[in-house]
Design a binder for these strands. Structure first.
Length: 449
RNA sequence: GGUCCGGUGGCAGAGUGGUGAUGCAGCGGACUGCAAAUCCGCGAAUGUGGGUUCGAUUCCCGCCCGGACCUCCA
């Protein structure tokens, strides 16, 4: 079995992945806050960790992958107040949209997908532990984490507590002991969603959700915690602080993985900047599989600039892969060839893996059936190339009408009326249909990429 | 301002202390009525100034440029 190496944000180094329990690998990834459609940046994180989950499953006998749904959040409350739509309706609809987007992108469901609303008692329990051990305090209906009580605070994000306090640029609430203290629990007004707690009716802070849900499903210490690089601070720093203090002696996540940001025109795509494409926007313009490939064309830690050019290139790459598979219809996915597995095991080097896929495609096109089998297997590991080549090239178009046009063109060619034959071809081209003449008067067609 | 990450052909994007992958685009050729696809071939890159070294794109330092984070963010 090849050894897996991953870059741990905690050490900022590439490390050999050594699971706590090799018979059961456990991973937690921060899922979406369900108040609006997911954008392509969200998709990147989901696709990256989907590939990691697939890779782990290929390497280890059992993997538990937990990815939460955050359905308690003030952005949701704000949205409900603005639109008048009930909170439960917003979160249910947005969750369903998210699931549909993930399915389109070939992102497999996680093993457990806990929702914050279903785990408030666990959150309260974690908070009570923190208060009991002196790491948190109640003040004016709030419960706050005392960053001064945790000497390791700032380790993940690489900041010293002093810097964090000095850099605090928000108004510091008067009930905070330190400017860097963050909310574990806050009071709700009667019109806001709330749960009864030892501190009155209120709702949890954002970070505590993940601490509670990872604990519930993966235990105090687990193998991998993933998310976008922009979550390192404050979210993951705070999450780690809470969990490490609530469960003394634990390690929480042994390895932290963070994917780079998706950029648009050199700037981060984010909801707050408003420069985002929703996943649906992009799926209207290109096949979902091309979008997935696009997201895997850069190494996960690097930034990735989204563009229509890149999308078109991804589509053409898939054309070539599917052409190679079409050449060998009987090739069944076999073992994943070493160059592909080796690249993925080296810190999920998907661009290098894709280069290996191109080499397999070349060999398959040259006639090697084994290469086609390896190509198919490699694609499947990446969540790609699962379609029938015919569906990729010709799905969704009216075959009968095209066949009739091809027949008419064939007749014109036999009569050596090439002007007419070319006119028919041009008409089809205008409709996005490309013809390919084979030997012996056969003609096949495909949609233009 | 502080912390961190990065700068590789026209574009995208890997690797590497010793003649710089891969894809897209471009150019030439084969094939084709012409194309398309496929095949063969070609040109084309390590931001900048130092240092270490027999040798640096790779390691170290400065500079320039870009990006992320600094309590909403994947």
């Amino acid at each position: 079995m090849p050894e897996l190496f991953l870059t741990n944000s905690l050490s900022r180094r590439k490390e050999r992945f050594t699971p706590l329990d090799p018979s059961h690998v456990r991973m937690y990834v921060c899922g979406p806050t369900v108040y609006d459609l997911a954008h392509l940046g969200n998709a990147r994180a989901m696709v990256v960790f989907d590939v990691l989950a697939r890779l782990l499953r290929a390497l280890y006998p059992r993997v538990t992958y937990v990815r939460n749904i955050t359905d308690i959040d003030d952005k949701i409350n704000t949205r409900a107040a603005e639109s008048g739509e009930p909170i439960g309706a917003i979160t249910a609809r947005t969750t369903a949209d998210f699931h549909a987007d993930m399915a389109a992108l070939g992102v497999l469901p996680p093993d457990v997908e806990p929702r914050a609303t279903g785990h408030v008692p666990e959150m309260i329990e974690v908070i009570e532990r923190l208060i009991a051990s002196g790491h948190a305090y109640a003040a004016e209906g709030h419960v706050l984490f005392a960053v001064a009580s945790f000497s390791e605070y700032g380790r993940l994000s690489g900041r010293s507590p002093d810097e964090l306090l000095a850099g605090a640029r928000i108004d510091v609430a008067p009930y905070k002991r330190d400017a860097g203290d963050f909310v574990l629990w806050k009071p709700s007004t009667p019109d806001q969603p709330g749960w009864d707690s030892p501190w009155g009716r209120g709702r949890p802070g954002w970070h505590i959700e993940c601490s509670a849900m990872s604990w519930r499903y993966l235990g105090e210490t687990f193998d991998i915690h993933g998310g976008g690089r922009d979550l390192i601070f404050p979210h993951h720093e705070n999450e780690a602080a809470q969990s490490l203090c609530a469960f003394p002696g634990s390690h929480f996540a042994r390895m932290w993985l963070h994917n780079g940001m998706l950029l648009v025109n050199g700037e981060k795509m984010s909801k707050s900047l408003g420069n985002f494409f929703t996943i649906r926007d992009v799926l209207d313009r290109a096949p979902a599989e091309a979008v997935r490939l696009l997201l895997l064309r850069a190494q996960y830690r690097a930034e990735l600039d989204f563009s229509d050019v890149a999308l078109a290139e991804a589509r053409k790459e898939l054309d070539r892969f599917y052409r190679a598979l079409e050449r060998h219809p009987d090739a069944v996915a076999g073992a994943v060839p070493e160059p592909v597995m080796g690249a993925l095991c080296d810190d999920m080097n998907t661009p290098l893996a894709l280069a290996a896929l191109h080499a397999l495609a070349d060999a398959a096109l040259a006639g090697e059936a084994d290469a086609a089998a390896g190509l198919r297997a490699s694609g499947l590991l990446l969540g790609l190339l699962g379609a029938d080549p015919a569906a990729w090239f010709r799905g969704g178009a009216d075959g009968a009408e095209i066949d009739a046009a091809i027949a008419a063109r064939l007749a014109a060619r036999k009569a050596r009326d090439f002007a007419r034959a070319d006119a028919i071809r041009a008409e089809l081209a205008a409709k996005g249909i490309v013809l390919e003449d084979g030997p012996g008067g056969t003609t096949t067609w495909r949609r233009a990429s």
